[in-house]
């Protein structure tokens, strides 16, 4: 299914809420998105960085997985 802008906004809100006391985490996420857009990093690079950034937050990782193309997935460690 195709995700919409509202889904992206909702996910970003979720990230901001969870790291309300650590705004640097959201800034780091924006940096990853910037590097992806400028093609400094590719999809596997994004996956690697995001999985480190959101380590210990399986709901955020599962939410992020919904934006990945088929065949890509961050494994959640429980």
């Amino acid at each position: 299914q195709r995700l919409k802008v509202e889904d992206a906004l909702s996910y970003l809100d979720q990230v901001k809420l969870q790291f309300g006391s650590q705004p640097q985490v959201y800034n780091d996420f924006l940096d990853i998105m910037k590097e992806f857009k400028s093609q400094s990093i590719d999809t596997p690079g994004v996956i690697s960085r995001v999985s480190q950034l959101f380590k210990g937050h399986p709901d955020l990782i599962m939410g992020f997985n919904t934006f990945l193309p088929p065949g890509y997935k961050i494994e959640v460690q429980t």
Partner: peptide, 19 residues
């Protein structure tokens, strides 16, 4: 880039970056 939804997420994140 064959990751259109990830591009969309990045676009939304970067355009809504108003603080």
């Amino acid at each position: 880039m064959a990751a259109p939804q990830l591009v969309m997420l990045a676009n939304v994140a970067l355009t809504s970056e108003v603080s």
